[in-house]
Structure formats: structure tokens, C-alpha cells
Write a protein that binds this DNA or RNA. Structure first.
Length: 513
RNA sequence: GGCCCGUUCGUCUAACGGUUAGGACGUAAGAUUUUCAUUCUUGAAAUAGGGGUUCGAUUCCCCUACGGGCUACCA
């Protein structure tokens, strides 16, 4: 590819709140495409709607990207040659470009109030037009610089009447572009309306701002969600109007991320409904106090996150789906992005996290578990935590499971599985178990293999079956029937603690039945 | 309603005109395991429907159905 090194893509969210995983997926695809082509990943804040601005949202998105390992090369908080990267700070720029379009006859002033627009819509609806639009026909009857006498327009402008600037969509022109994931997409300008480019509050709309900025920032590929497809022709027309068509970026409209069940694209509320976070990090809306929970805090691994995010709408083609970030980068290509919406599957996401968890070393897991333990008020020897992780990792899906499913490694008090005790504990065998416990206590090396040997010999000697002994040992040691091999548990617990728990267990068991 | 996009197992998907339509998640059965989990084996499970084009369509074209997106001085 001759383009290598010149690729520039951008992730340009609107800071109206936290971005759920669909947004991060868009960022990821941009990032992977940039890295893959030796290009630059730009991060820009599209905060042109001040009424929807939510404080903290920009930082939240920045933190989400950082946590997911998506590094920004240029943009907000990073800087770069084409800043500022916050659109509100580029405000004056857009006015100039809007004026340029007015001068060249590609745009016009419109003075219609929201009441005027409302009236127009109800009138047209009443006339049987189901989708009223401010288009090449409607504009003839509205309060704009095309329909009004010239002196009236100048008077209104001079008087400081509020106005917007609209694109003048030409009649009956074909607009087509070659979308990287969808192929040729064709529209006719007759179906396009005269979108507002510049608002009466002095801010540009998305349409103007994204085109101007993408041009000025030398963006080569616009990779965004499919919800933008219908406005893409307007953007193409804008490039044409500015005379930038020859350097217009290539478009790639990504399939949408859909709800796990039912229909529609994934939305804000789905997370709580599913009991599975769809946001990256915990967040509390400073305006409303509303809280959402994040995958990171839930114990999701960043590399698992990007792995399954990548699989939402993209597929490597082969049989390998579990990939670390390097493998993901190696395998990624826009050509392999599918066209149809991808349903978010929490079950598969869990499985992928489990796979990544299993690939980690005991030491890495211990480090990840540390904050969880600290939060629980537990301080434990690092090496001990490592050994616990080694035993628990086959059973864990999320990091906290390492602790949740093995609490007995960190506390001497726990509930006993009374149902099994009632069923299996024989009072007349109590002294046998006490005897076994003593033998264990006499052991010089309290290792898994030695313990196994000892217990087996004991069982043979007293004609006891595995089922008679093992569950009892397990419950006395951990309280539950589930868990790692008993001998391993004892080895990690250590002889002293194991013996104490066993002795205590027999006592309690006798009282329980 | 209009415009646009889409449609392979329940879900994510592979198969760039010729395959017994493959894999993964989930699911069912079994093996291993003192238990749980892991692991392994096996099974069930799909080309939306109808027309074309072609020697041959999952694949190309058209229609229908269904799904989705957009339809703001929001992005």
C-alpha cells in the first residue's frame, strides 16, 4: 500500500455521557486500523451541543480508552499539530467556513423560528406528506435568504435577527461513495434536506464540524457506526461544496452492536437489565446522580475486552478467536468487517474473559486480585495469594471470583454445607477422623503428594471409601463441596491451619447431627 | 410513511459459483475428577421465501417478507 504511514483516523465522540461498549468498539476499530497501517489515531471531542454537555464525560472516555489499551497518538490531552481538538475551542473557525459556503452559493441564511418550522411540519403532515423536510421545494416558502427579498435579508442580518445557515442541497444530483465495508452506496440529492450547518447559538452542527475538522486534520479514513450512513451523502456534498472532494476521506460504516435479546441497537439501559455491564468503567453522572457499573470494576481483563469487542462485527476468518492484543492487531483488517448488525452476547464475553484469565500467570493474577482483597480488608502474603490464584484460576471467570469462590483461603470462619454433613457424617466414625487428623499432624512434609499417600493408606487400613472421607475433609477445611483438589487446599493452607480446621470440623459436625 | 442498510445453526461467524455448508459461544450426552471448574469425545442445530442468470448457486440479479438505522438549530 502506498498509503502506509499516511493513514490518519479519528475517534470523535460527543461528551454527553459515558460511552458504552459500542462506542469503544468504534474507537478500537479505528485504533487497530491506524496501528495496522502505521498511521495516526486522533481523538477529538465533538462538544458542539452545549445543552447536552456532561462534565466528566471527556475524562471518562479518555480513561476508558486508556484502560482498554487504546492509545491516542494525537488529540485531546495529548496535543498535536492540528489542535485544538475540542470543537468548542474551534468555534470561530466554523463560522468562517460556513460563510465561505454562503459566498460560493452552497449555503444560505434561514431565519425560521422553531415555531415556523413546527408550523411547516404540521401543515405538510396534514397535506399528507409523512416526512416533512426543509428541502429544495420547502425552502421556497420559508424565511430564508433564498426566498426573501435581498434588502429584507440584509435588514434582518443588520438587526441581529437570529439565523441558522443551511446547506443548499442541489436538485436531482447523484451522490455516491465507495464504503469500505458496504461497497458503493448511492443517494439522490432530492431525498436529502437542507441540513442546518451552523446554529443560531454560533456553534456548528455535527455535519459542518466533522467535515471541516476531518479536512483540516487530514483524516484519511472515517470509520464510524452505521447510524451515520444516512448523513454521509450530506457530508460528501459538503466536501464537494468546499472543493475538497479529491482529498475526501474514505468511509467505513461499521455494523451496529445490537441488544443481546430482542431488537434494536444496544442502549444505555441494557447493562442493568442484563446484570452485565456494558460500560467500561464505573460512572456516576454528576448532574443526575445516576450510576452505571463498569466491566473493569467487575473484573474484566482489558485484553479480553478488546478481544471480544473486536469480534463484534469483525472476524479473523480462521478458527482462532481468543487473541491477545498483538495477535488481534496482526489479524485485523477492515475488509473482514461484516455488514450485518452484531448482537452483543454476554455469555461469549464471559467465556473470552475466562480464557484470558487462564492464560495469566499466578503472579499476574495475584497482582490483579490484590486490590480486591484490599477492598475486602484482607492483607495477605503475596506468595500465598499467588498460590491461591494458581488453585482457583481454572474456576474463575472474573478476577474477583478468585476471591469470591475461595474465601476460605482468607478467613477461618465460614458456613458448613449442613445438608451434606447430615447425609454423610457418621458419629461413630468421629474418632477415626480424629485419628487421621493426628497422623496428618505428625507429617513432616505437608505436601499434596504426601497427604494423598497418607490418606489413601488410612482409607485402606480402615476399609473406607473415597466418598466416605474426601467430602468430609473438604467440608471441614472449606465448608463447601466445591473447590480445588483437597490435598492442594491443605498444602496451601499449611499443616497447622489444616489440622486446626479439621479438628474443629469434627467437633462441629458432631453437634450438627 | 419516506430514504438507506442488512438477512448462513438460538447467538457470533467461515465458505471470494463446485464443500458431506466449517468453527466458536451456548446447549445435550459421555469420559476424566472425591467435588466444582478445567480438559477431551460425541450429538442436535442454519443458507428467510419466490423467481431468474448459470452445466452448477450460500455466493450474482430481481421481487416479497422480515430485521435494523436515519428521518432535530443531537451527535
Amino acid at each position: 500500500m502506498e498509503n502506509v504511514g499516511n493513514v490518519r483516523v479519528r475517534y470523535a465522540p460527543s461528551p454527553t455521557g459515558p460511552q458504552h461498549l459500542g462506542g469503544i468498539r468504534t474507537a478500537l476499530f479505528n485504533y487497530l486500523f491506524a496501528k495496522k497501517n502505521g498511521g495516526t489515531f486522533v481523538f477529538r471531542s465533538e462538544d458542539t451541543d452545549q445543552s447536552r454537555f456532561v462534565p466528566g464525560a471527556e475524562d471518562y472516555i479518555t480513561d476508558s480508552l486508556r484502560w482498554a489499551g487504546i492509545t491516542v497518538d494525537e488529540g485531546l490531552n495529548v496535543g498535536g499539530p492540528y489542535g485544538p481538538y475540542r470543537q468548542s475551542e474551534r468555534k470561530e473557525l466554523y463560522r468562517e467556513y460556513a460563510m465561505q459556503l454562503i459566498t460560493s452559493g452552497h449555503a444560505y441564511y434561514a431565519f425560521d423560528t422553531s415555531e415556523d418550522l413546527e408550523a411547516m411540519r404540521t401543515r405538510m403532515t396534514a397535506q399528507g406528506n409523512p416526512s416533512p423536510a426543509y428541502d429544495h421545494i420547502t425552502r421556497q416558502y420559508m424565511q430564508n435568504s433564498l426566498a426573501l427579498p435581498k434588502d429584507e435579508v440584509e435588514k434582518r442580518l443588520a438587526a441581529g435577527d437570529p439565523y441558522v445557515i443551511r446547506i443548499m442541497m442541489p436538485r436531482n444530483e447523484e451522490v455516491k461513495f465507495n464504503d469500505i465495508v458496504r461497497g458503493w452506496v448511492v443517494f439522490n440529492t432530492n431525498q436529502l434536506d437542507d441540513k442546518v450547518l451552523f446554529k443560531s447559538d454560533g456553534m456548528p452542527t455535527y455535519h459542518l464540524a466533522n467535515v471541516v475538522d476531518d479536512h483540516l486534520m487530514h483524516i484519511t479514513h472515517v470509520i464510524r457506526g452505521e447510524e451515520w450512513l444516512p448523513s454521509a451523502p450530506t457530508h460528501v456534498m459538503l466536501y464537494r461544496a468546499f472543493g475538497w472532494e479529491d482529498t475526501m476521506p474514505q468511509f467505513a460504516h461499521l455494523p451496529l452492536v445490537l441488544k443481546p435479546e430482542g431488537n434494536g441497537k444496544l442502549s444505555k439501559r441494557d447493562g442493568d437489565r442484563l446484570g452485565f455491564p456494558i460500560y467500561t468503567l464505573d460512572w456516576e453522572n454528576p448532574l443526575t446522580g445516576e450510576k452505571i457499573s463498569g466491566l473493569a470494576e467487575r473484573g474484566f481483563l482489558p485484553e479480553a475486552y478488546t478481544n471480544f469487542l473486536a469480534l463484534l462485527g469483525w472476524h479473523p476468518g480462521g478458527d482462532t478467536e481468543v487473541m491477545d492484543p498483538d495477535a488481534l492487531l496482526e489479524a485485523f483488517s477492515l475488509e473482514r468487517v461484516g455488514k450485518s448488525g452484531a448482537r452483543f452476547d454476554p455469555e461469549k464475553a464471559k467465556w473470552i474473559n475466562q480464557q484470558h484469565l487462564k492464560m495469566k500467570s499466578d503472579k499476574e493474577l495475584a497482582a490483579l486480585l490484590e486490590p480486591v482483597l484490599t477492598r475486602m480488608g484482607i492483607t495477605s502474603d503475596a506468595e500465598y495469594v499467588e498460590r491461591v490464584c494458581g488453585l482457583m484460576k481454572e474456576r474463575a471467570v472474573f478476577v474477583p471470583d478468585l476471591y469470591e469462590q475461595g474465601k476460605y483461603f482468607f478467613s477461618d470462619t465460614f458456613d458448613y454445607d449442613s445438608k451434606t454433613i447430615a447425609k454423610k457424617w457418621k458419629k461413630d466414625r468421629a474418632n477415626l477422623f480424629e485419628n487421621l487428623t493426628e497422623r496428618i499432624n505428625l507429617l513432616q512434609v505437608c505436601k499434596s503428594a504426601e497427604l494423598e499417600q497418607l490418606v489413601h493408606a488410612f482409607m485402606e487400613e480402615h476399609e473406607l471409601k473415597m466418598g466416605d472421607v474426601m467430602p468430609m475433609l473438604r467440608i471441614a477445611l472449606t465448608g463447601t463441596l466445591q473447590g480445588p483438589p483437597v490435598y492442594d487446599v491443605m498444602e496451601v493452607l499449611g499443616k497447622e491451619k489444616s489440622v486446626t480446621r479439621l479438628q474443629n470440623g469434627w467437633k462441629v459436625f458432631n453437634q450438627m447431627i
